[in-house]
């Protein structure tokens, strides 16, 4: 694959993700003010000392945005990694083992998916203590049901291929079949799926925070910042739209990259089919 083969839209996506990651990694060094420092009047307009203005308590919006990138990306990424590992492990086991194990996992997964994710999260978070690791775990478990479904479908697609049967006939063990025969053939769709899940996690986390059930103040996170500043909207103060735009921007960037990955996968597959 050559770099020039990447379309512009994907470059935009990659650039956006890189910028967000840079902010997240080096927040304390690049943010002009502290995360929780009250530095001025409330809801100051953009410009001057505060490029993006100040928030409802007089904190620098840009600094909070940069620190917020850290929280938002870290939590979303952690939830995605956990949900992906969990979903993939269970789905590949189900697909390769088949029979009772497959039935059990799949039916339970159907049950979990019968409740809308947000509603499920609301019910569970109503009961559980508000802690960061619980939040990540709830997001991960709920999202892993979607990963399970995809993982199982993709693995089954490959598992019925004759080269897998050939490996079975040779006497290969389950782990060889999963890691050497099936996994290499599912990497591209799964990579795209990982991107999708990450974008979804960012939006989901932001929504929960916006509803007051995600990251708790005073820690900065983008969804929470929208909640903090939403009362300004009615006075024409756009402070809430800044973190909202950041969420949308990052999600768009991730989706642009995913879109490209998917097109690449499908055209690869098409190429093989035509032969």
């Amino acid at each position: 694959m050559r770099l020039s083969s990447i379309p512009i839209s994907a470059w935009v996506g990659i650039a956006g993700i890189t910028l967000a990651l840079f902010c997240a990694l080096f927040a304390p060094w690049i943010a002009p003010y502290g995360e929780r420092d009250v530095v001025g009047d409330i809801w100051l307009p953009m410009g001057g000392d505060f490029p993006l203005g100040t928030d409802n308590l007089g904190r620098d919006l840009l600094s909070r945005l940069i620190f917020g990138a850290r929280t938002t990306i870290f939590v979303a990424l952690a939830a995605t990694v956990i949900s992906f590992s969990l979903g993939m492990l269970l789905s590949f086991t189900a697909a390769v083992t088949g029979g009772f194990v497959d039935q059990l996992f799949s039916r339970f997964n159907d049950l979990m998916m019968a409740i809308p994710t947000l509603i499920f999260a609301l019910v569970v978070l109503a009961v559980l203590p508000q802690q960061l690791w619980i939040l990540i775990l709830v997001m991960a478990v709920l999202d892993s049901t979607r990963v399970f479904r995809i993982g199982r479908a993709v693995a089954l697609d490959v598992a019925v291929m004759e080269f897998v049967e050939a490996a079975r006939l040779r006497g290969e063990g389950t782990s060889w079949i999963i890691f050497r025969e099936i996994l290499p053939n599912t990497l591209s769709p799964l990579l795209a799926e990982f991107g999708l899940r990450f974008a979804f996690s960012i939006l989901f986390l932001s929504t929960l925070s916006f509803l007051g059930l995600g990251i708790q103040p005073p820690a900065a996170d983008w969804g929470g910042m929208v909640k903090d500043n939403k009362d300004g909207i009615i006075f024409g103060i756009s402070a809430a739209l800044v973190p909202g735009g950041a969420i949308a921007g990052l999600a768009i960037c991730v989706n642009l990259v995913v879109d490209w990955l998917m097109k690449r996968t499908s055209s690869l597959k098409g190429g093989r089919g035509d032969a």
């Binding site: 004759e162 080269f163 050939a166 006939l169 006497g171 025969e181 053939n185 032969a275």
Partner: peptide
């Protein structure tokens, strides 16, 4: 016993791992 009996398939395309 497995070694002594081998198999060749109709579609060589799907009988070989495309990533190997």
């Amino acid at each position: 016993e497995l070694r002594r009996v081998q198999m060749i398939y109709q579609m060589a395309d799907t009988a070989m791992n495309p990533r190997q």
